[in-house]
Simulated assay, not measured.
Amino acid sequence: MPVVPVDLAGRPYEVRVAPGLLADVGNQCAPLLRKAIVPVVTDANVQAAWGERIDASLRAAGFQPHWKVLPAGEATKSWPYLADVVDWLLALEIERKDHVLALGGGVIGDLVGFAASMLKRGCRFIQLPTTLLAQVDSSVGGKTAINTRAGKNLVGAFHQPALVLADPLALETLPRRELGAGYAEVVKYGLLGDGAFFAWCENHGPALMDGDQALREQAIAASVAAKARIVAEDEFETTGLRALLNLGHTFGHALEAETGFSDRLLHGEGVALGMVLAARYSARRGLIDPAEAERVAAHLRAVGLRTELHELGLTADGAGLVAHMLHDKKMDSGTLPFILLRDIGEAYLARDVALEDVAAFLDEQL
């Protein structure tokens, strides 16, 4: 079983990657659980697919699971549901040394992690990610947040999990569209810092998408290891290194905002299209060969992801999309840094990007 350590000073934890981890969750988590009562937060879709097995595993290990089942979807990552979860945990008399189990995708992981960061000034939580996107990205690194009317992930906290169990078998119940959204985050690690891994994705991505479990396990472990290295060096995104993980996100978040944070565009789909736009904008600035930018688009298109802005049917122009970017949490003294590419496998933080030029570029893509 691949075990990836996330080495943070005084707060290290493991990301375990193996089929069967969810069915064995009681034994896996037992060393961390100090009381019989174990709160589990999930959404309705995940509860239907995994609830009985998780419940049985916890009870077999001597625990009493208490369930909070929330609606599925991005709208759950909001103030009302955050308050609901916090009030529920308080009613269960959860203490600071107790662990809350977050069973689900990025929405549940972010929401539960943020709730745990606030509860009694911080209790502990365990990530049980059930989507590819959560397994390779959002469950690792401690970024937790909710969305607001102003934008995505603008209210949150850095709060690291105590353990992450990434079970590739959970992906078997995932719709292909959700799988593709998560695969975009796998590709991201190749684009931002490992050209050889991007080439691996080009060679194996279609088979991974079609269900090859060995490839999925390999991709999850490699992605988590890449993120763990970055998080260990720049936990709070202060040096610029961790910011590279936002490749595709500035464009993607603007597209998500324009589509109402809805099922019109899943987060990973926005990231995929955002990475294509970042690559094409890099080419426009003479940083990379246009053929390399189209190589990025070709691979994402080959696994079924949208790569053309006009495919979204947006009514906004480039200036309208840039207006969404002004709410980006990376804004600093009126300047928005962009993650651009000098090569496939070599991303960097550009602080000299004029938003007027970005708007003109986006108009060309619409």
Score class of each variant (00 low, 15 high):
R351P: 06
R16I: 07
G26I: 12
Q218C: 05
A297L: 02
V69F: 03
H99M: 08
A196Q: 11
V322F: 05
E256P: 00
E356Q: 14
R53T: 15
V296Y: 02
F198N: 04
E172W: 08
K330L: 01
G20F: 11
A350Q: 06
M118W: 07
T335Y: 09
G180Y: 10
P71Q: 01
A61L: 11
Q64P: 04
V276A: 00
A279R: 00
E311N: 10
A319F: 01
H310G: 07
G106S: 13
A298K: 04
Q365D: 13
A181W: 09
L33R: 04
A293V: 04
R59G: 06
A232C: 05
L273F: 01
F114C: 10
I126G: 05
A196S: 08
L101E: 13
R176D: 15
C201M: 08
V155L: 13
R301S: 14
L8D: 04
L336G: 04
A145F: 09
A360K: 13
R229P: 00
K330C: 05
E346A: 12
A56I: 02
L163V: 00
G180L: 05
L208C: 15
L169Y: 11
L89V: 05
L89K: 11
D363G: 13
E74H: 07
P161E: 10
H324N: 07
A254Q: 03
T315C: 12
G345M: 01
E178A: 14
F158Y: 14
Q160N: 15
A181D: 11
H253G: 01
A272H: 02
V69K: 08
R295S: 08
P129S: 09
R124G: 02
V38G: 03
L179F: 14
G313V: 09
R124S: 08
K227P: 03
V322G: 04
A257N: 01
A36E: 15
I146Y: 09
G334V: 00
H267R: 02
G73R: 04
Q160A: 15
E235M: 06
L33S: 08
A226Y: 01
E202R: 01
N153A: 12
L192D: 03
R53C: 13
E217D: 09
S333C: 06
F338L: 01
L340P: 03
L192M: 02
F125N: 03
D263L: 10
L89F: 07
